[in-house]
Simulated scan of single mutants.
Amino acid sequence: MARVRPIPDTHPQFSVLDLPGYREYRVENWHLARDGSGRIIRGTSYPLWLSILSLCMSIAWLKTTAWLLATSLLAITLVGINSLPILYESVVVIPSQGIQFETHQGLKSRSLISSRRFIPFASLEDVVINEALHRWNVRFYLVAIRQVGAHGHRLEVAFENLLPHHPILRQVYYGIQELSPYVAR
C-alpha cells in the first residue's frame, strides 16, 4: 500500500492510496489552522445536546410504561448514531469495475458507520467538476452522471458532506479519467 499526499502544503487532509486492484482518493475531516500555527482543527458533528434533550423528555414523560421507554431508547439511539462525526469521505476507483463513493462516521480514528454507493462503468456517463453558488460563496463539487433506465440520468455527488476545495477535486477527476475505460475524455 502506497499512501501519497499530493498537495501537502495547502491540503494535507487529502491522500491517495494505491492498492492492488484499486485506488482510493480520501479526504479526512480536518484542516490546518489558517493562522499558520500548524494546529489541526477537527470537523464537527451534529449537536449532542439533542440526544440529551430527548433523554430528559423521555424521563419526564415516563409513567412506568414499557413502550414509552423502548420508544425513547430507540429515539436516543437513532439521534446518537446520526450525531457521530464524519471521519472521512473517499472515492474508490476500481479500474475494471467502476467507482464507489464512501462516507465513514465514527469516534476519533475508529469508523463505526460507513455508507457506500457503487457506480459501474457501464452506467457511468461522465464525471464532471461543477460549481454552485451558496450565499456569497462559489463551491465546487465532483459529480458522476449515471444513466438510469432508457432515458433517465442521476447525479451522484462525491464528498457531499465535506465539499473539498477545487485542487483536491481536480486531482480526483484526473485520477478517475486515467483509470476508467468508459468515461468520456
Rank of each mutant, 00 (worst) to 15 (best):
N137T: 10
E160F: 12
P120Q: 08
S109F: 07
E125V: 02
L112M: 09
V143L: 11
Y141C: 06
E102I: 11
D126S: 05
F118K: 05
L155R: 13
R154V: 05
L112D: 00
E125F: 06
A158D: 02
I129H: 04
N130E: 13
P167Y: 11
V148M: 11
H153K: 15
Y173V: 11
H134V: 08
R146D: 08
S115V: 05
V148Q: 13
S114G: 00
V183D: 02
R154L: 05
H151L: 12
E178W: 15
H166C: 06
R110N: 01
P167C: 02
V183I: 10
V128F: 09
L133V: 14
K108E: 06
G106H: 05
A144H: 13
S180W: 15
A184N: 08
S114L: 04
R170V: 10
P167S: 07
V148N: 12
V148H: 13
P120L: 07
R116S: 05
L142S: 08
G106V: 01
P181I: 04
H165I: 07
A122C: 03
V127F: 03
Q177P: 11
V127E: 02
A132D: 07
Q105L: 10
N130L: 11
Q171E: 15
V138G: 04
L155E: 11
W136R: 12
R146G: 03
R146F: 11
R116C: 02
Y182A: 09
A144L: 10
Q177Y: 15
T103A: 06
S123N: 03
Y141G: 06
I99Q: 05
F101S: 02
Y174L: 15
E156D: 13
A150I: 14
Y182L: 12
R110K: 10
V143I: 14
G149E: 14
E156R: 04
G152D: 13
I129F: 09
Y173I: 08
S114E: 04
E160G: 06
H104P: 00
S180M: 08
R154Y: 09
H166T: 08
R110I: 07
F118R: 04
D126K: 02
S123H: 05
G106M: 00
T103R: 07
V138C: 07
R117G: 02
R116L: 03
H165S: 13
L133S: 11
S115H: 09
L163G: 01
A132K: 14
R139L: 12
Q100G: 02
I176Y: 14
F140A: 13
Q100W: 04
N137V: 10
P181F: 10
A122V: 06
Q100Y: 00
R110F: 13
I145L: 14
G175V: 09
I119K: 00
D126M: 05
N137G: 07
F121D: 01
Y182M: 11
Y174G: 08
I113D: 00
N137K: 12
S109T: 04
K108Y: 09
Q171D: 15
S111R: 05
H165R: 14
L124A: 03
L124C: 00
P167A: 05
Q100F: 01
I145Q: 13
I145P: 09
L163W: 14
G106L: 01
V128Y: 10
V148L: 09
L124K: 01
V138Y: 14
F159M: 06
R116V: 06
N161H: 12
H165V: 10
L107H: 09
P167E: 03
V183W: 07
L155D: 08
A132C: 03
Q147H: 15
